[in-house]
Design a protein around this nucleic acid. Sequence first.
DNA 1: CTTTTATTTTAGGCAAAGCTAAAAATTATT
DNA 2: AATAATTTTTAGCTTTGCCTAAAATAAAAG
Lengths: 218, 218
Amino acid sequence: MKTHTESEENYIKALYHLGGDQPVSNGDLAQRIGAKGSSVTQAVKRLGQKDLVNVVPYKGVQLTQQGIRLAKSILRKHRLWETFLVDKLGFGWDEVHPLAEQLEHIQSEELVDRLFKFLGSPKHDPHGDPIPERDGQMPPVLGQPIGAFTTGAEIRIVRVEDAGTEFFDQLETMNINLGNTYEIRAISAFDSSVELGSSTGSFWLSQSMCANIYAIQS
Amino acid sequence: MKTHTESEENYIKALYHLGGDQPVSNGDLAQRIGAKGSSVTQAVKRLGQKDLVNVVPYKGVQLTQQGIRLAKSILRKHRLWETFLVDKLGFGWDEVHPLAEQLEHIQSEELVDRLFKFLGSPKHDPHGDPIPERDGQMPPVLGQPIGAFTTGAEIRIVRVEDAGTEFFDQLETMNINLGNTYEIRAISAFDSSVELGSSTGSFWLSQSMCANIYAIQS
DNA sequence: CTTTTATTTTAGGCAAAGCTAAAAATTATT
DNA sequence: AATAATTTTTAGCTTTGCCTAAAATAAAAG
């Protein structure tokens, strides 16, 4: 596997995020990358010459098989580094993303493999997102939004959306962490907020909080 | 502290390595960086505009105080990452340098501080080289070449020069590691090789091996 | 089914970093 | 001290990657 520039890798990542294997528009890509459309046009042309994407002018860009493989390998690195930063260095959920964006560009298969082992061969990162395996396989995406359960259900938090600093702060102050278990005590018919109960008491979660927190029945 | 390009940081590192706070010639710098003299002329001009170096055309380039501070912070990161790779991920001595060259460019004070603590606040890296402290202070450079001791001395290996893969391989096969203790049994008057003894037996070390292995009296 | 609007591409510029080849300055040698 | 040899700089070119402004195309609206 050849070596790519950081910019190239960022485009691949963005493409994967926005469309997976589906075509993505120039505009959406530009927005995601934070560059102007004209820059994107050029960039994807370069990617096309390396067979990482297929470009249909005026129509959209689509990752090739090779592009998808690269995207997954970057995502793997990103999520492994996030795991490292949280589990080993004690960073908070909301702090790790920008750091992982730098670390994900480090080139070394060997390093990734060793890091993976060092972290205990994790299947999911600290947010509960699946970490692609070496061969590109994806572990399952866990859970469903808390609002999707019914009263009386026993649930365990398994994943949270990356919905920004304020969201993570709120989780922190409410002491909500992956692995926590609760009982669904009530669901408001008025505003869809949910009452969660545990051994230490109970509290209400707003609908928008619930929408970003995923759980499984336990 | 502003953010610098990788290229800039590489020049600063090279400058520090070659001259410390002393002027360095264009040629030496070019050789170290692996670029042509003309590229170096341009590069140092850019560094000069950022007050990282003082340039005297046709005479040489010299790090400023600010440049030295930056150089040390990069070296700190380099050696902390090397420590991480060896101590935590189990890499061998000779494998870590190129990886650390990538990792040393990651920008985050916070990350460095946490990594430092995670590694047990080390003063020296896996080769025994001093790790600059946060404030730029340098721990002592340890030991003297094995050839500098006299017969009968009890010594402990504290540092090895980065003298290439073959050297490290030789250390490996001879099972020589930092912390090992030996007695100087004999020094050849013919070729300056040295006989080292331990509880498990004794062996001879060539003069050029000795020159790259540093020890202290223990 | 045109015309207006929105999106995308082209054209031309700029900065970082590298290169080669030629000119200038320094150092070394008669 | 004058010339030869070496080193350094300048000049001009290349690629990546971004920009703005203008032209071209596609999509939406009348």
